[in-house]
Computed example of a mutant assay.
Amino acid sequence: MNNKVLFPQVDHVEANEDEVVLSLTIPAGLYYFKGHFPQAPILAGVVQVHWVMHYIEQYFDLKIEQYLSVDALKFQVIIAPEYQVKLILKKMSDLKVSFNYSSEHGAHTSGRAVYR
């Protein structure tokens, strides 16, 4: 049995066909914090992008196999354990979705996922 916590807690979702707003709590026991870094854990950028792909597939039905690239990727403010984060996914076209993570700590990460 796998007890690893791999995703944030989803506290609230507002969704329509072109936009999804997820209110997330980043659990202190998240698997990805182990070793990254022990004294001051931060959420790795690759994990943030993985979550974006997961939620895009869930809400917009764009399959990971169709993923082509992430454009205009910017990491601005770290995400730490217990942060309350908002992830906004906006469908820009049938094959492009913008995303951004933000919280009371500022704008964390943004970019555009492009599919084929």
Score class of each variant (00 low, 15 high):
residue 39 Q to I: 03
residue 105 H to C: 09
residue 80 A to D: 09
residue 5 V to D: 03
residue 116 R to T: 15
residue 86 K to T: 15
residue 31 Y to K: 06
residue 10 V to C: 05
residue 64 I to H: 11
residue 23 S to L: 10
residue 14 E to N: 09
residue 105 H to N: 12
residue 63 K to Q: 15
residue 15 A to W: 03
residue 76 Q to C: 04
residue 80 A to C: 11
residue 97 V to I: 02
residue 98 S to A: 08
residue 93 S to D: 08
residue 71 D to L: 13
residue 48 Q to H: 07
residue 15 A to N: 08
residue 20 V to H: 01
residue 1 M to E: 05
residue 54 H to W: 13
residue 16 N to E: 14
residue 43 L to A: 08
residue 58 Q to L: 05
residue 40 A to K: 12
residue 79 I to K: 07
residue 42 I to C: 04
residue 10 V to N: 06
residue 45 G to K: 07
residue 18 D to M: 07
residue 63 K to S: 14
residue 69 S to N: 12
residue 73 L to F: 08
residue 16 N to L: 12
residue 28 A to N: 11
residue 65 E to M: 14
residue 30 L to M: 14
residue 5 V to P: 07
residue 81 P to A: 04
residue 28 A to L: 11
residue 33 F to M: 00
residue 9 Q to Y: 09
residue 70 V to F: 14
residue 5 V to N: 08
residue 115 Y to S: 11
residue 85 V to G: 12
residue 87 L to S: 03
residue 53 M to D: 10
residue 65 E to R: 15
residue 39 Q to Y: 10
residue 92 M to G: 09
residue 69 S to H: 09
residue 73 L to N: 03
residue 83 Y to P: 09
residue 48 Q to E: 10
residue 68 L to S: 13
residue 17 E to S: 13
residue 12 H to N: 14
residue 87 L to M: 05
residue 9 Q to I: 06
residue 57 E to D: 02
residue 40 A to Q: 14
residue 11 D to S: 10
residue 113 A to M: 09
residue 107 A to E: 13
residue 55 Y to E: 01
residue 77 V to E: 07
residue 90 K to S: 08
residue 61 D to F: 09
residue 26 I to R: 09
residue 25 T to I: 15
residue 77 V to C: 04
residue 58 Q to H: 10
residue 58 Q to D: 06
residue 42 I to F: 13
residue 22 L to A: 04
residue 75 F to C: 02
residue 17 E to C: 05
residue 43 L to H: 13
residue 59 Y to I: 02
residue 35 G to D: 05
residue 108 H to Y: 09
residue 33 F to Q: 00
residue 13 V to D: 00
residue 88 I to A: 12
residue 58 Q to A: 07
residue 63 K to G: 08
residue 88 I to K: 14
residue 98 S to C: 10
residue 31 Y to R: 04
residue 108 H to L: 01
residue 106 G to W: 00
residue 71 D to K: 15
residue 28 A to E: 14
residue 28 A to G: 13
residue 8 P to F: 01
residue 102 S to K: 12
residue 98 S to E: 11
residue 40 A to L: 12
residue 41 P to W: 04
residue 16 N to C: 13
residue 75 F to K: 07
residue 110 S to L: 01
residue 79 I to F: 03
residue 109 T to D: 03
residue 57 E to R: 12
residue 15 A to C: 05
residue 89 L to C: 00
residue 18 D to G: 06
residue 33 F to N: 00
residue 42 I to V: 14
residue 8 P to N: 01
residue 90 K to P: 02
residue 110 S to C: 03
residue 81 P to V: 08
residue 19 E to A: 04
residue 114 V to K: 05
residue 35 G to H: 11
residue 25 T to M: 13
residue 110 S to N: 10
residue 13 V to W: 01
residue 24 L to W: 02
residue 22 L to K: 05
residue 8 P to E: 00
residue 52 V to G: 00
